[in-house]
């Protein structure tokens, strides 16, 4: 286990999440893609902390990423509820009002 191998696994996770977030139509599935991407960021940040500078500051950054993940989930579910209430749908394609 080296920094490079952990970062490679994190890159693979990020790419899988990106693919899901771009291609999925259901709001909850798009959020799953975003979650996988944040998961990859957590793994990469953990590896950076351990292999480059193992002082507590890096761990604090990880906690901030976890907090961001929680906020993303909560607001995402709230928006999904709003879209479902007004449009009767849980698809991203029914919420394209701001699309250019």
């Amino acid at each position: 286990m080296t920094l490079q191998t952990v970062l490679l696994v994190a890159a693979a996770l990020f790419a899988v999440g990106l693919c899901g977030a771009i291609s999925q139509q259901v709001v909850v599935m798009v959020m799953m893609g975003l979650e996988v991407m944040v998961n990859a960021v957590i793994l990469a940040a953990g590896a950076m902390w351990w292999f480059l500078a193992p002082d507590p500051t890096g761990q604090v950054l990880l906690l901030v990423v976890l907090a961001a993940m929680t906020v993303e989930m909560a607001m995402g579910f709230a928006v999904a509820t709003l879209v479902h209430r007004h449009r009767g749908s849980d698809m991203t394609d029914s919420a394209t009002d701001l699309a250019g």
Binding site: A11, L18, I22, Q24, V26
Partner: peptide
């Protein structure tokens, strides 16, 4: 269920992201 759109473009973007990030890591 299979509810996806533009799967080919999404795959291309994610493979490109993996190549860039992986190359950076190595």
């Amino acid at each position: 269920m299979s509810m996806v759109h533009d799967k080919r473009a999404a795959l291309a973007v994610s493979v490109a992201a993996f190549v860039v990030l992986g190359a950076g890591a190595l």
